[in-house]
């Protein structure tokens, strides 16, 4: 029965018959990390009217001949338990960190490690955006990588990218990494 369902789902997936390769990306991180701003910046939308996300946002971005469906799910503590409902069939995880919020580095690290352990994210590449580099108090990406023990990840591709979602700096670099990685992986 379970198998039959899976089969049917895949059938319906194929029904869409789009020639484009579709990629499902989940965008996570603590509240106020800048996930929605990043999402809007990716979609070239106005980033000045963003309010805390209570639910989730979806944007489809065309890049490198692929269609990236990016799911940005609210990061408030009470919403985090819902994260795992969105992890199924995810091709890539983007994790956003407020580089200037040193007090919560530990908290964000814990959340990330929990995600990494999720069955649905097994082997899924991770891109970490060290966001808010435009702030003077922001920690450098290397420092954050160390704090997160990224170098201990053995089962997946990972990358940390310094950026500022507000100015857009570094965002494109991250996207390039994503596309290169997805292409490699999907092949």
């Amino acid at each position: 029965m379970g198998e039959a369902q899976k089969g049917l789902l895949s059938v319906i997936e194929k029904l869409k018959g789009t020639t484009e390769q579709e990629v499902r990306i989940v965008l996570l991180g603590l509240d106020n990390a800048g996930k929605t701003t990043l999402l809007k910046s990716l979609a070239s939308e106005d980033v000045n009217t963003i309010t805390p996300t209570q639910g989730f946002n979806i944007k489809s971005v065309a890049s490198h001949g692929m269609k990236l469906n990016v799911w940005d799910i609210g990061g408030q503590r009470k919403i985090r338990p819902f994260w795992k409902k969105y992890l199924e069939n995810t091709d890539l995880l983007i994790y956003v960190i407020d580089s200037a919020d040193k007090k919560r580095f530990e908290e964000t690290g814990l959340e990330l490690s929990e995600l990494i352990d999720e069955e649905n994210l097994k082997g899924v590449p991770v891109l970490i955006f060290a966001n808010k580099q435009d702030l003077a108090t922001a920690s450098p990406a290397s420092e954050i990588a160390e704090g997160l023990n990224l170098h201990t990840y053995r089962d997946r591709e990972w990358q940390i990218q310094a950026c500022s979602a507000v100015s857009g700096e570094g965002v494109q670099d991250g996207m390039n990494w994503i596309c290169n990685n997805i292409v490699n992986k999907k092949k």
Partner: peptide, 18 residues
């Protein structure tokens, strides 16, 4: 913005259609 409840409903819908 989507509400979290949409996902739940979508899930139910999938089950129904399947």
């Amino acid at each position: 913005e989507n509400k979290l409840s949409y996902t739940e409903i979508h899930q139910q819908y999938k089950t129904l259609v399947e």
